[in-house]
Every structure is written in C-alpha cells, then in structure tokens.
Amino acid sequence: MNVDLNLLRYNPEFDSEPHFESYRVEADPMERLLDCLHKVKWELDSSLALRRSCAHGVCGSDAMVVNGVNVLACKVLIKDLKQPITVEPIRGLSVLKDFIVDMEPFFAGYKAVKPWLIVDESEHEPARERIQSQEERDRFDDTTKCILCAACTTACPIFWSDEEYVGPAAIVNAHRFIFDSRDTGGDERLEILSQRDGAYKCRTAFNCTQACPRGIKVTKAIQEVKRVALYRSF
C-alpha cells in the first residue's frame, strides 16, 4: 500500500524554522512506522535524521509525536495509523535536527532523584544475595520496566511549561527504588521530590500513562510517591 507521511523537518544549518515536508512510500500494513521512516531516508532523502537502534521497543531511542501522540516509531504499525501520518519531534526538549532532540535535560532530571540502590554503607555487605520475597519484588515491578525513552516526560503539559520540573520518568525511577525493600534511601529521595520541582508539580493529566510504550502506570506511580512523601510510610 501507499503510505503518506508529513514529517516536521528542521536542520539548523539551512532552515530558519521547522517545516513540514510530504513523502510517499510503499509499505505493508504490518510494517512499523520506523520502517517507513527508513524508506524515506534510504530511498528519498538521506538527510533525514532520527535516532533508532533496537527497532522493537526496548532501547527507547525513537520516541516521536505521531498523529499528535507520543509513541516509539518502532512500536506502532502502519495499519494502526491514520494517513497522512504526521510525525514531529517530542516536545519540551530543544530540537537539534529533525526528530533528534537534546536529551541532556531529561537525563539531568533522572540523575537528580538518585536513581541507584542506596544502602547503609556502614552495614556489612552480605556474602550472598539480599533476601527479598517475590511479593516485595512485585511491589516495584512496574517501574523497573522504564527504558528512559522520554515519551512520558515529553507528553506532560507541566514539563512543557516548566523545564525545571523533574518530570514523570525521573519520578518513575525514584519509585523503582523507594518501593524496593532493599533500599534505605527513601528519605533523601523524598526530600528531593518534595521540593518545588518535584512530584507535587504533577496535575494528574494522565498523558504520561497513555504515552508509556512499556505500559507502566506512570501517573499511579507518581501518586504513590506523593503519598509516601506526605506520610513517610513505605
């Protein structure tokens, strides 16, 4: 079938501002949007710039705004998209070229919440593994799935208007540790997340949950973090 694409192009070396360009490629309905973007790049215009790697939704490189919503280009099939397919870069991060945005502020938000296991350093390291029940493990299972693709954060209207907000992905990664029975860093993380740019900025728009390609209940995770921040009970 023919597939019509409207791509928001921008190369700062030549363009004063972003503009749409139209392309038509041949594709099977079961193909991924990423396959069609590759056809544009490989057959029509080699200058098209995008990030991609695994092409099956696990590396998190190719989050884009497709027909108005955040998706991974490798995880959405042509048969499920209304034509012409409009593709734009994710919002709230500055565009460097075509669909490539500056990821540094996103990773700064991630780093700010101390996304690593915090344990009492004075305690003796166990010789074997730490014991954790499967129920305790299941408590934070959902948020371990995050691939840091930024689809949630860049779907958040608060993040668009306030780049100081750490954003949903950072809170998801804080959640992953706050609810891990092995972690003892809850208080220091919650201190950070209780500040002005932390979890309370969330206005529960649910855009993040809809955007997550891994099916993480992002808004729920943020609410859980808000609740423990308030009551400090894990």
Partner: peptide
C-alpha cells in the same frame, strides 16, 4: 558476578525463600 549485581540492586525474580530464582 550474579550476587554482586543483586547487591547493586538488580531486581531478580525470587524463590519462595526470597533468594534469586
């Protein structure tokens, strides 16, 4: 190596006794 990854925080699936499955 596996035990060390667990101590770094890797969330392994668990046995009924809470060990790495």
């Amino acid at each position: 190596s596996v035990l060390e990854l667990e101590r770094m925080g890797l969330p392994f699936n668990r046995t009924p006794e809470g060990k790495i499955d």
